[in-house]
Write a protein that binds this DNA or RNA. Structure first.
Lengths: 338, 338
DNA sequence: CTCCTCACGCATAACGTTTTGCGTCGCCTC
DNA sequence: GAGGCGACGCAAAACGTTATGCGTGAGGAG
């Protein structure tokens, strides 16, 4: 019914040897034009497609790449995924998207899962990655491109944006608009991205000659619910902040939920800012001031770095690409208080 | 450095034959406890992991499934993806997510790509699927679960929601609120989902005893920009509609963009409704009346259907699961006009 | 005419599994 | 003590590729 057996069927049909068919396919050895066309005719006639399993058995490559993300439901990550596809799919690679946030799944499990499948490369969101995981990666020999930080595995590249500068520009913008008591709601406390954004916040305040009140920093999770929980903690303070800088847009949206539930006007009483510039940031009321995070370009760049490695054209230095971003000013921070 | 050669290394290490190791792994034949533990020790010691390529060479299965979606950037689809992962990942399957909307990519190409990789099954969004594509699927013998419509391939299942009823409930709600001149903005004209939602709209009007004015139906694409374009066409009419029913939330958001750009108040002058209940629907101002579309459950269901097939426990009837949904009433439709 | 050199094609040996038909051994039954 | 039977383990044959070392003509150089 369907595609006939394999390369030997093609060889028989074309009256040549198996190796010749293989050579026609790979082009690694010269084949006369006449033979080539006989083989091609046979391939066409039998509707032959090479068996990727057999191929990978020989070559020890699977022509597939895994993307590991903390939460594909965060609209930032699908964009990363399409960026990767932009580059990888034309080369015949298959991209598998693996979401860690499935019920009670961990990075280690997910990593084991994709390593067991012998993917050629991994684009890894570092969130939740333990030293044991890095050890696993290192000894597996699989190529990895990290998103957001250097994972310190030899021969692995990473791509990031200047998080501290990004958050810094948000804080400066708020200061410029007269906000002074500026709070911060981060993601998971141990998360690297979260702490980068937190230091950016601290440094911006310090370099403006202001003090940093630790009471004004809370950590939660990179989700809408997390943001709401964080905001409620800030609302217990004796004196409210007049602005809340959030580590991503989802958190900011949650913060807005919580403030609004308390009847607090935004930005009249408290300004709120986000990070990533997901689509919802422009839709919510008030529209969210945020930092655009070039997700698709991050995906493309990481795929290119990975591809270089897979083609073996890189020595084992660690390469680092830093993409640029810019502040997006919207309503949630524009009104000057009092 | 890394995981040693293969099953024969394990066999040697444990002092047994290759087949015995295989039997320990698969459990398809009894193995004495003593032997089993020697083998397990060897596996542990050598950090052995079976080679999936070799395995699939024998078994003719890849333990992988492809999801083909029109646009992963539409927040509906990532949810479908995690739903599929919920079911498939625990079984050791790898899910590859394939976005058709990459620059100038077609369903046929994407299909060929995943079929060439010999995936065991495909979860297919029918959007943009030609008869030739279906032919390709049928003769490949790959298991397919379709989303949204029966693709008519023997032995393929599909899962959908009652689109017509969903849109119908929107229209009834609008009629109940006094809206009378109700327009419709669809996705691509030839898209099946789009036309289902369109018929739902027509039928609801007819069964309420109202006429259907074809001038009030426009088709565009399932995106925000598409929605804006559609709205602009409606705005050229001599008399404005007083409500616009959109085929999905993205379109509705675009419609709101366009209306707002013309200074038209929503829902005061024109009400707008969406479909899917993506997160942004609750965030935009005015919050969007819409129909919740159980994306994650759609993913889970389709994965279960696929798994049944892959386990061979189904004869070749076409199974159909219809999931339920409900109207979500928000501000964009609640004000009664005049 | 002989020898060398290409250009082309072939046979064969991996690659790492799973499956299946056969031993072999020990023990039970009569 | 003979026969039978279970339980366990092994060898070998696939599965479909790609890489590699050789063979064989044809044609050119001497």
């Amino acid at each position: 019914m369907n595609s006939a057996t394999g390369i030997v069927a093609v060889a028989t049909e074309a009256g040549v040897s198996v190796s010749t068919v293989s050579q026609v396919l790979s082009g690694k050895r010269p084949v006369s034009a006449a033979t080539r066309s006989r083989v091609e005719a046979a391939i066409e006639k039998l509707n032959y497609r090479p068996h990727p399993g057999a191929r990978s058995l020989r070559s020890q490559r699977t022509e597939s790449v895994a993307l590991i993300v903390p939460d594909i439901t965060n609209p930032f990550y699908p964009l990363v995924a399409v960026g990767i596809q932009d580059i990888l799919m034309p080369q015949g690679y298959l991209l598998s998207v693996n979401d860690v946030a499935l019920p009670s799944r961990t990075v280690s499990e997910t990593l084991r899962h994709v390593l067991a499948r012998r993917v050629d490369g991994i684009v890894l969101t570092t969130y939740g990655c333990t030293p044991a995981d890095l050890e696993l990666i290192a000894q597996s020999g699989t190529q990895v491109v990290a998103l957001g930080q250097d994972i310190g595995v030899s021969g692995s590249d990473y791509v990031d944006v200047d998080e501290a500068a990004g958050i810094g520009s948000v804080v400066e913008h708020l200061l410029g608009n007269g906000f002074r008591r500026i709070a911060f709601v981060g993601g998971e406390r141990e998360d690297f991205t979260s702490s980068l954004r937190h230091s950016g916040y601290r440094e911006a305040l310090l370099s403006a000659g202001l003090g940093v009140d630790d009471e004004l920093s809370v950590f939660t999770s990179f989700t809408r619910d997390g943001g709401a929980a964080g905001a409620r903690r800030l609302l217990e303070l004796d004196t409210l902040p007049d602005a809340i800088v959030c580590a991503n847009d989802l958190i900011a949206i949650g913060v807005i939920d919580a403030l609004r539930a308390r009847g607090i006007s935004i930005p009249g009483t408290v300004a709120v800012t986000g990070y990533d510039d997901i689509e919802a940031a422009g839709l919510i009321t008030p529209a969210l001031t945020t930092v655009d995070n070039p997700a698709r370009e991050i995906g493309r760049t990481s795929a290119r770095l990975l591809l270089d490695r897979l083609n073996g054209s890189v020595d084992n230095v660690t390469r680092h690409v830093r993409l640029s971003q810019h502040l997006v000013i919207r309503e949630s921070s524009t009104v000057v208080p009092h």
